[in-house]
Design a protein around this nucleic acid. Structure first.
Length: 140
DNA sequence: GCCAACGTTGGC
DNA sequence: GCCAACGTTGGC
């Protein structure tokens, strides 16, 4: 089981949009960056991820689960790009902001803090627990 | 709206 | 294969 972080501009695709898809989930299409794509190729069904709002909010707002491994991105004919599908699991009780993450020395190496531009990132188990706790979720 | 950081492209 | 030019992302 691995942990990840998915970034989205809420203008384009928000947590509420994701929640609206329910169990069916949503294809995480539109990724045109090799590092982000490679991360998606490593994902397995059942892996968990944070749903992060970039630009507006700049905060982790919810938890998602990978529900389909990486497959061709339906929004392009370019065979280089593929993507997973994710479904909403639950919101954080309290969003965890980028500022919060920067303020916690234990999260200093988090990709979110270090490489602000990567849109699909790995999260370590420790980071996962710390952010969940900060978000008011005892476990997951 | 600006700009730093980073990725990609293309000329050589 | 290097690197300058350019485009994009995302925090501020």
């Amino acid at each position: 089981m691995a942990f990840w972080l998915f970034k989205s501009e809420p203008d384009v695709w928000s947590w509420d949009d994701q929640l609206g898809r329910g169990e069916a989930g949503e294809e995480w299409h539109g990724i045109r960056n090799y590092q982000a794509r490679n991360n998606m190729r490593l994902m397995k069904v059942g892996d968990l991820g944070f749903f992060y709002h970039s630009n507006i909010g700049k905060e982790v707002v919810g938890i998602v689960e990978v529900c389909r491994t990486s497959a061709p991105d339906s929004t392009t004919d370019d065979p280089r790009w593929d993507c997973v599908m994710i479904r909403a699991v639950r919101p954080l009780r309290k969003p965890v902001t980028l500022e919060d993450c920067k303020a916690d020395p234990r999260l200093a190496d988090m990709v979110l803090v270090r490489n602000t531009r990567l849109s699909v990132q790995p999260v370590t188990e420790d980071e996962w627990r710390i952010v969940c706790a900060a978000g008011g979720l005892a476990d997951t």
